[in-house]
Design a protein around this nucleic acid. Structure first.
Lengths: 338, 338
DNA sequence: TTGAAAGCGCTAACAT
DNA sequence: ATGTTAGCGCTTTCAA
């Protein structure tokens, strides 16, 4: 079932069929009707590969989502899509798992779909010029930036929060309320990624409050998985019965912390406070509501798209933007009673 | 940057380059090395469209996920992917939003990627032979079936739970504990989809317990959105202060119900019980843990893939499988005290 | 307004 | 083991 079949069936040439399918103006109503009828009758659907291959260029912007299933990205994806369509571009989205290489995936998608530009939703923090070279179209990192890499700032854009500063703010929120035994739940203190940055912010806040760092208050877990986080909290609670607050570097971990504390017989926030970063939908529905620094997901998306398009249209240069989170005060943080 | 450039750069023919790129055995180490070097140097990435277009046929199975961001699908997607790869096929996944047409999306993907078969994760329950005609490859509906449609059972496969029966089971779980004022939270009682089926099961359980149906205990909400569900529960609680149990047709709604009840000063399960269907990861972390009928997500995925492949390889025919949920007893259901 | 034909970049016979 | 070449299905000049 190809365009040729449709042409034969309707008794016109393939080019006429193509014109009808692509809404070209100069086709007679008669031909148009016959072609559409044939399409209907034959259940014809154009082959995208062939289409993309022959089209000079598309107006497609690629979106690579790394960490499929991460609820943090869901609203961002929606906002990104809306912005892209509104600007008159089309979107090609591709989800990969957290252990895949977003640059390779992006490069492949870029060529496959003749993309004009790309938005990376989640990725490594340590790109090198060599690594990104495969991606020979403008791109913007959304929700992260190249903190540990060696990329020339002019060769890409980014829109993210300042992880170190926001982590500092979260922990500061705890120290301001008198907490001193503050645990942190994260991936790894030296993951060259988000956990490392947020750990730095944690340390700075402690330092400023003259609280010595204490390794036994640091719980590293392999994965941003709620069960694993739950177990991490359990270990933490066994080890340090005296802790009064927990900073979870992501809401998923915060939610798990709430549960682990409850199951261990600790009241939140009376016995132990919990704060995290992200502002996931579900953290609005925990009991108590999780106190979290909500990432400006909509703005993250809007800025990423508009900046990319500005670069694509030659109206602007690459740049880097830090957005601020907004504190969403739930009921999971209280003053320190000990 | 095409295969031709790589060929010229490395001083071999395009077919040699193609061979290297596709891991064909009969290429000399010398040529292989030269080609790989050129690929590296030129940052060459093959154009997928061209590749797909020229390849006689792929071994790709398509997966259409309808309702991007629905946490219910996340683990299923993972399991599906694992199964597909394990069976020696490749996967093409495409996520669409809940208001898009999965058949059109599937048909497009099928032709674009020359798919051998397709797995539909979520979709309408009322297909007609005409509507599915565009999809001229074997397909299996995963997590739903064609309850309201007119499809010939031999033309497709499905793997799902029996929505009516499982809803009956959930409500029966409540009536068995003495509950009689049981509310239901759903999309619409006549949505020709999942809500309608589960509503039927709800009615049957009530009938069996000689409880008259009461419209004021039915709360219809537009969307499977937690905030909307929360508001729905609020309306319900205002309207019917006397209700003692809630059946939410999805875990997301159940989580919201827990919160709404808590905020309204009702203890769960002492004052009001909550049960739902799905078994989402997050419902393990609510307080109390949500009692839910857990869908066998892994089995759903495994069966969908294996049945599809059996059909593809001519080793089996289309068929329809109902799997059973497993009761996950949390702490959200108790005996009726009133 | 329509049709013929030249690619788009790649793979897979078919030669050599 | 390597090169030549004919398509894959479509869009898009270029003629008519």
């Amino acid at each position: 079932m190809t365009i040729k079949d449709v042409a034969e069936y309707s008794g016109v040439s393939v080019s006429s069929v193509s014109r009808v399918l692509n809404d070209h103006p100069d086709v007679s109503d008669q031909v148009r009707a016959r072609v559409l009828e044939a399409v209907q009758a034959l259940h014809y659907v154009p082959n995208n590969s062939a289409r993309d291959l022959s089209r000079a260029q598309t107006d497609a912007i690629g979106v690579i989502v790394r960490g499929a299933g991460n609820p943090f990205f869901t609203p961002i994806i929606h906002a990104v899509e809306k912005e892209i369509l509104q600007a008159g571009y089309s979107m090609e989205i591709h989800q990969i798992s957290a252990d895949e290489d977003e640059l390779a995936a992006g490069a492949s998608l870029a060529r496959a779909k003749r993309l004009k530009g790309m938005i990376l939703l989640g990725g490594e923090f340590d790109y090198t010029p060599d690594k990104v070279a495969v991606l020979n179209i403008p791109f913007v990192c959304c929700s992260y930036t190249n903190s540990f890499g060696t990329l020339d700032k002019n060769t890409y854009s980014s829109v993210s929060i300042d992880d170190e500063a926001e982590a500092y703010r979260a922990v500061r929120y705890l120290t301001d309320r008198g907490h001193r035994k503050i645990a942190i739940l994260l991936g790894a203190v030296d993951d060259r990624s988000i956990s490392e940055l947020r750990y730095k912010g944690y340390c700075r806040a402690l330092q400023e409050a003259a609280i010595p760092e204490d390794p036994s208050l640091v719980e590293e877990i392999d994965y941003y998985d709620m069960h694993v986080a739950y177990e991490g909290i359990q270990r933490l609670l066994e080890r340090r019965q005296d802790l009064t607050a927990i900073f979870a570097v992501a809401d998923t971990m915060g939610v798990a912390a709430l549960k682990a504390l409850h199951d261990a017989g600790r009241q939140v926030p009376e016995d132990c406070s919990v704060i995290s970063i992200d502002g996931l939908p579900m953290s609005n529905f925990t009991i108590p509501t999780l106190t979290t620094l909500e990432q400006p997901k909509d703005e993250l998306a809007v800025e990423a798209v508009s900046r990319l398009i500005r670069v694509l249209e030659g109206k602007g240069k690459n740049g880097h933007l830090y957005l601020q989170t907004s504190l969403r005060e739930g009921g999971s943080v209280g003053p320190c009673h000990r």
